[in-house]
Simulated scan of single mutants.
Amino acid sequence: MRRLQRVLSRPVGSLTIPGTTLATILAEGWASWPMETGGLLLGHRANHHGLGAVAARVIGPGPEARHERYGFEPDATWQAKQVAIVLDAGQHP
């Protein structure tokens, strides 16, 4: 058990969130306040060693998402369509 705890507590990289991506995340959070919200982050590896990532794009919760005070359920169908649009258009983050 201790070995597993050591492995799980080791840093494995970093996540870079560019200013425009962070602004989108914050806007969504404030728009739903005080209810919970969520979404998807799409991005890429920051380097060839796979030790970091860049969150380049945000896909919001979706129009049919359920926002509650202590819970959130995304509109997964809408989110999947948005991911497909990004991938089909070759707009990989």
Rank of each mutant, 00 (worst) to 15 (best):
V86G: 00
G71S: 13
A55D: 04
A56Q: 06
T16D: 00
M1W: 05
P11S: 11
R66I: 03
H49A: 14
T37R: 09
R57E: 03
G43I: 11
I59P: 04
D88I: 02
E64Y: 13
P63E: 01
T20Q: 10
G13M: 08
A27S: 03
P74R: 15
L4H: 04
A84V: 01
A89F: 07
E64W: 11
Q79K: 03
T16C: 02
V58A: 01
Q91D: 04
A55I: 10
V54P: 01
G43E: 10
Y70C: 02
A56L: 06
I85E: 15
A23P: 01
I59Y: 10
T16W: 05
W30K: 07
D88E: 14
R69M: 07
M35L: 05
R66W: 08
P63W: 02
G90F: 03
L15W: 11
A76F: 05
T24M: 03
D75W: 14
E28V: 13
K81M: 15
D88P: 00
L22T: 06
W78Q: 09
L26K: 06
S32K: 13
Q5E: 07
R57K: 14
E28C: 09
Q91W: 06
L26G: 13
A27H: 12
L51N: 11
A89Y: 04
G71F: 03
S32C: 12
R45T: 04
R45D: 13
A89L: 13
P93S: 09
V83L: 09
V12N: 09
T77Q: 10
P93I: 06
A56F: 03
V86I: 11
Q5G: 02
I59S: 01
P93F: 01
R6N: 11
P18V: 08
G62M: 13
L40R: 15
R57M: 09
